[in-house]
């Protein structure tokens, strides 16, 4: 199965990245791949367990054990990383 190109943004970051992920990958894999572009790079490092992902126009965190496809993510969808509330306070994005 070919990779799904996705748009990925991250809380407290400024940019939308293009990320390709196998359709059968888990949501957790997507979080890890996407976070590696931003967490500890543009925003302070933090444990992956505190990083979640949602569709940019949705509120609910996607289940980390589901496959990307089963989580309803399609090619060229825009997903957004967000964090547990932590040192810097409430989520801003």
């Amino acid at each position: 199965m070919s990779d799904l190109p996705l748009l990925v943004s991250c809380e407290r970051d400024f940019l939308v990245h293009l990320v390709a992920i196998p359709a059968e990958a888990r949501v957790g894999d997507l979080i890890e791949a996407a976070a590696s572009l931003v967490v500890g790079v543009h925003v302070p490092d933090r444990p992956l367990s505190t990083v979640h992902i949602r569709k940019i126009d949705g509120d609910a965190a996607l289940p980390i054990d589901a496959t990307v496809t089963d989580a309803g993510i399609e090619a060229m969808d825009w997903v957004h990383l967000f964090f547990d509330a932590a040192p810097e306070g409430e989520p801003v994005q």
């Binding site: 943004s9 990245h17 572009l37 126009d57």
Partner: peptide, 27 residues
């Protein structure tokens, strides 16, 4: 050093950016 390309606006061709203290406009 970037590892992937930034997504650019379909109209103005510039990387899509936001003030990091403000939310994206989504829809």
């Amino acid at each position: 050093v970037p590892k992937t390309l930034p997504v650019v606006c379909s109209f103005n061709n510039l990387p899509m950016v936001t003030d990091p203290s403000k939310p994206w406009a989504g829809k």
